[in-house]
Structure formats: structure tokens, C-alpha cells
Design a protein around this nucleic acid. Structure first.
Lengths: 355, 355
DNA sequence: TAAAATTGTAAAAAGGTTTTTATAACATCA
DNA sequence: TGATGTTATAAAAACCTTTTTACAATTTTA
């Protein structure tokens, strides 16, 4: 029983304190009652030997790793950063760790989740599903660890689920133009029609139009991706020709990247933004404020998503919750300048700043 | 020995295959030779029972968690994303996992590293040190797991170390203005003087000036942080007054945020960028291309840093390497428009685009 | 052909905890 | 004072592997 390796174990502590290992364990974990005198002896020995329980042995014995896995399609953008921020905060506060994995394709996702769980390497999995999900969830099948699905409504699968109400978000952005700015018309410019965010936001835009008796048809345009250059061309080709200089418009962009490109494209065409055309973004990313014309955008409570996701896993581990939980978080309109609400003197070509 | 829980263990496999557990282990790990016939029996049983080795038990027995910890001050920006990208790629390729922790203060860093290591929760630690490091490394003291330090030169501590040559990067950006654009003068605008990146880049700028017999004094300015608004005001207050409309200047910004704010501030003052004043950034972040005037910037091989860091840990674990390794990576100049190299017709107020 | 080496497998030990069971010491009640 | 409870601790079992040791069976060498 003599450990020749350098590490101090519960056995060493027991010997020094003159008690059994089970007593040491009880002192360390503080669950069971121990005589004050004994407790003191053990604590002294622990301090003297600088004993730290071996987490690997604890994991085996407790059947728990104190690790939660976060699986995302990629590590880019603020969404991931904020998700991490929230997840880490909640994890840290509860003494668990976050393991991060990237899985883009359905196969990769299935493989990652099943491997992590069947190996018992993680106590729970947070899986971000931005695209199709049926085959992924079917592929995963039954697992014994808690699983939280992000970003995609997986109703009927009886899984913990966190969603963002993109529809309402876009609805509000659109209504902002209608209600506050009294625009003559409003357009939507999205990324790919395959993207769940874009489609949900397009739906919100359409709903807002419907609410005032208009049809979205001919007012929304899509590209192949969320890129600046593509957004720029789309704005040039689709939006610009529809602009009547006498009128006042609003453009709801599916995200901040696209909002940037729309603003630049229209300004390059000589359109005054936001006077003639107001623009709103989505995501409240860095670029919304790293510009002369600060972008009005929908802020997504991403950090909250991360926090809630970890909380859900912990709840399930504690066994307190039984029914699958579904949390829908709402985006919030951050009013800045690009919609026309803020200072009006900063983005007008040839204005008093001397251009 | 009958496990009542649902999980399949090596014992179940052994029983079904009619062999001992050690034989199953040898088949699974494939280290020792096993008779073809026995191997087949075992493999069949494994497949039939859908056995997966319990990683917690493996961790205890092998004294290794197949987990590498990445400790960063925060999760924001492309630097973190790219670091993760590289680290995950290398980790995935070697069957290990990445655990991510946030530690801002020195105390948090010390606490995180020592706890992870003394508990045996990780096989190695990648620690990003952007600020002072002496007290952190002293606080950490001796640990038994491999430790790689990022971003800060910790010579004399005999630790694996990965650095970015910020000095050379800024030197090259500065020389680009001098050599290619033949500017009449050049300025540097940084973040906080406490920030190691800013100071190293300022040094590179100064070295470039010295190389042509000039002094950096009066040509470099610092703020309190890396923020857009502060950069904007600094550019207004410090750079603008120095600009002679008849002359041609270059401004080296300590990062892309500041480059954005300089460009906007100068343009708002009626200065033509890049014709009168060229600007370069640093980092090649998103915002460098999400603008009308694409920013010339120094691209940092961040992904490579992540990859190399993991590789260093793995090398050390394998025991093949003995001496501490030090890798210095270089930033690369990405030439776009803001320095004056690209198209010149896009950012001029009142140009042919009709403004 | 006896001795030695090799091969294939079983049995046991080790890894460091937690948790259950057992036991001793002591207090409480009838 | 003997039965009953309570408390504090020790001992042992369990968690599930990997790895070492031991031992037969077989092959090779002298």
C-alpha cells in the first residue's frame, strides 16, 4: 500500500493523522459527522502534506467527471465567445469544467456526442444545432447523459432546449421602422435561405408586414452566405433599384455583417443613410460599434444561453427536474444611429464635417 | 462482481468471450500479442455488447486524462477563436480534449493552474500571459504537468514558450509606409502602454524609425485601452493637428480597432484616407474587411499558435523532448487598401460614386 | 531428448477515491 | 443492570481499467 510515486494520497493522510482512510474521506467531503478532535487531526495532516484529492479517482468512484461538453459547429464570431462566457461563468460557479469540441457535419456531431457519453467522459452535453437536426438526434439515439439542444426547436424529442426568438426579434426591428420612423417601405436582406436564423428572421419580417396588411413578397432577398461582399452586391442589385429618392425606407438585415455591407453599398451609390434609408442589423457584434455610423441592431442574449444551458445540465444531474425544459430567449433592440434614431449629422456625405 | 448498473464493462466482455479481463484489455489496446482466434472471440463479444472502455477508469489506471487545459484572460475576439481552432485541430488529431478556462487576474491564473495540476485533472496546461508574468510563474511554482506559456517571453524560467514577434510586425508595417509609399512622416497610435502587445509594437515602430535615422519621440501616442471611441479621440487630438495637407503620412495602429477609429476620425475631419494619410492595423480581424476601405493589417498566425501549443504539450508527455522549446511566430503584412496600395477611388468623399 | 526459450492466457495487484457494512465504545431507558 | 440506541471509526467492497506476475503449453536449442 506504500505509494512510491510522488503524489500524496488519502492513505498518507490517514497514516499521519492516525485514522482510517474512510475518516479522511469523510472529513474531506464533510458529509458525515466526525468528532471535532478527529476532524482537527485530519485537517492538520492534510495541510501539512498538502493533500489534494485525485480527481481521476474521484471521477471513477463518483461516476462523474465534473465536466460538461460544449459542441459547436465552429469557434468563430461573438456568438461562440459569449456562449463560452456564460457557460464558463455558470460552470465555474458550480465547480465544473467546460470541454469544447467542434463538430460541423451531422456525422461529426453524432460521433462526438455518442463517444463522449459512452466513454463516460462528460457529465452532460450542450449541442448547438444550427441546421437540420432530425438525423443528428436520431443518430445519437439514447444516451444516459443530459443533453441540451441549442438554437433549434426540437419539440417532440423530449430534450432540454434553448431557443432564441429570431422571429419576434425581426418582427420588432421591422415594426421599429414602421412605428417609429414611419417609413414608406421596408425591405429584408438575409444570408442563405438554408440558414435557420435567416429564415426565422425573414418570417418575423414577413409577420410584421402582414400586421400592417402588406406582403413580404418582393421585399425580401437572400444570398448564399453571410458575407460582406455578397451583401454589398445584393444591396447594390436588389435594394438600390427599388429606392425612390423622394421616399423614406427601412432595411432589416439578417445580421450585422450584412447591415454593414448594405450601409456601405447604399452610401457608395449616393444614398443617404439613415436619412433616406435606415438600416438595422442583428447580433450586436463588434462591428456594430466599430464604425462611424453606429448600427442599430438586435442584441442576442448569448451569454444567457450559455449560462442557462449549463444550469439545465446541472439541474438534470441533481435529479430535481423531470420534465424536459424549453427556454425561449428574446433579442432586444439596441437603438443606435443607423436606423435614424441617433445623431443625424455624421454619415451624410458632404455634411458639415467638410467632406 | 456483478455490475447492476447499465454499463457494460470489460468483465461482461470477458465472460461472453470466455476469456479473462486482461485478455480483453490486451485486445482493446492492442499492445500485447493475442492469438488470432482469441482476438476474434473478444472482438465479437465487444461488438455484440457494444462495449466502450470507461474513460474514467482508464484515466485512473493510466494516470492520464487525455485532456489539455487552455487558460485565457477572456473569450473575446478573433484571437481566442483562432487559438481554439488550432488547439482543437491538433488535439482532435491526437485523441485528446481541450478544456477551456478563463482567468484574468494573476491570482486566478495561479489558482487555476495549481488546482488543475494538483488534482490531476489535466495532462497539460496552455497558459496565455498577456501582462506581467513573474508573480504568476512564481505563484505557480513547481508543477508536475507540462506547461506552455503563450504571448510572453518567459526566458530563464525554462518553460515551453510560444511568442509572436510583434516588434518585427510593427517594424514591417512602418517600413511599408517608408519604403513603398514614400511618406513624409509616420505615426504610431497604441492602446495602453501597460499592454505588452502595444509596447512591443511601439518598439518595432521606433526601430523602423531609427533604421532611417528618425526618432519615435513625438510620433507615438498611447491611450488607456483598445477602444474605438478612445482611438477616435486620440486620432482627433494627437494625429490630426500634425497633418500638413500638402504632405503624405502613414499611421501605424496597434490593432484593427484603433485603425478603424483613426480612419473614421481623420475622414470626419476631412482628411482623405489613404491618399493623404495611409493607415495600417494589426491582427487582421473581421473589421478589417467589413468596411468600405479594406484595412491593410498584420495577420497573426494565431491558429498556428494553438496548434503548436498542443503539440508542445504532447511532445513533453511523450517524453521525447527534454529541453524547453521556444517558438517565435511572425506576423504577415496583408496589403489591402487603407495603406494606399489598393483601389483609390472608394473612400474619397465626393468622388465619382456620387456623394 | 532434456533444457531453455517463447507464447498465450489467467490471476492478482495497483490506481485513489467513495460508500457500505461492521464493530466498538458509550449513553439512554426501563 | 441488561436491552436498546447512538456515535465515531475501521474495514472492506466497489468503481473499471491497466499492468505485472505467474503458470501452463508449446516451440526451439543444445
Amino acid at each position: 500500500m506504500v505509494t512510491e510515486t510522488g503524489s500524496i494520497t488519502i492513505h498518507n493522510v490517514a497514516k499521519v493523522a492516525g485514522v482510517s482512510i474512510s475518516t479522511v474521506s469523510r472529513v474531506v467531503n464533510g458529509l458525515d459527522r466526525v468528532a471535532p478532535d478527529t476532524r482537527h487531526k485530519v485537517k492538520t495532516a492534510i495541510r501539512r502534506l498538502d493533500f489534494h484529492p485525485n480527481s481521476r479517482a474521484q471521477a471513477l468512484s463518483r461516476k462523474r467527471t465534473d465536466t460538461i461538453s460544449l459542441i459547436v459547429p465552429d469557434f468563430e464570431g461573438q456568438y461562440f465567445s459569449m456562449l463560452m462566457e456564460g457557460a464558463h461563468e455558470e460552470a465555474q460557479a458550480n465547480g465544473v469544467h467546460i470541454m469544447v469540441l467542434k463538430a460541423k457535419s451531422s456525422e461529426e456531431k453524432i460521433e462526438a456526442v455518442t463517444r463522449l457519453c459512452s466513454q463516460g467522459r462528460t457529465d452532460g452535453v450542450i449541442l448547438m444545432l444550427s441546421d437540420l437536426y432530425g438525423d443528428v438526434l436520431k443518430g445519437i439515439g439514447h444516451i444516459n447523459s443530459p443533453l441540451v439542444i441549442l438554437d433549434q426547436d426540437v419539440h417532440s424529442w423530449r430534450l432540454d432546449n434553448i431557443l432564441l426568438d429570431n422571429r419576434i426579434g425581426a418582427f420588432e426591428a421591422t415594426r421599429h421602422f414602421i412605428d417609429t420612423h414611419n417609413v414608406d417601405d421596408v425591405f429584408f436582406l438575409g444570408g442563405s435561405e438554408d440558414n435557420v436564423d435567416t429564415t426565422a428572421r425573414a418570417r418575423g419580417f414577413a409577420d410584421a408586414l402582414k400586421s400592417i396588411g402588406l406582403n413580404a413578397k418582393g421585399r425580401q432577398f437572400f444570398g448564399n452566405s453571410y458575407s460582406y461582399d455578397e451583401g454589398y452586391h445584393l444591396a447594390e442589385e436588389k435594394i438600390f433599384p427599388l429606392i425612390n429618392p423622394e421616399k423614406h425606407y427601412g432595411v432589416v438585415a439578417a445580421n450585422d455583417d450584412i447591415a454593414c455591407s448594405i450601409i456601405d453599398a447604399l452610401m457608395d451609390k449616393g444614398i443617404r443613410v439613415p436619412e433616406q434609408v435606415g438600416v438595422t442589423g442583428f447580433d450586436d457584434s463588434d462591428m456594430a460599434i466599430h464604425r462611424r455610423l453606429k448600427i442599430t441592431t438586435m442584441r442576442i442574449p448569448t451569454k444567457e444561453i450559455g449560462r442557462v444551458a449549463v444550469r439545465m445540465i446541472l439541474n438534470r444531474l441533481s435529479g430535481r427536474v423531470s420534465e424536459p425544459a424549453k427556454v425561449v430567449l428574446k433579442a432586444r433592440l439596441i437603438v443606435r444611429d443607423s436606423c435614424g434614431c441617433g445623431r443625424h449629422d455624421n454619415s451624410i456625405p458632404g455634411d458639415k464635417h467638410g467632406k
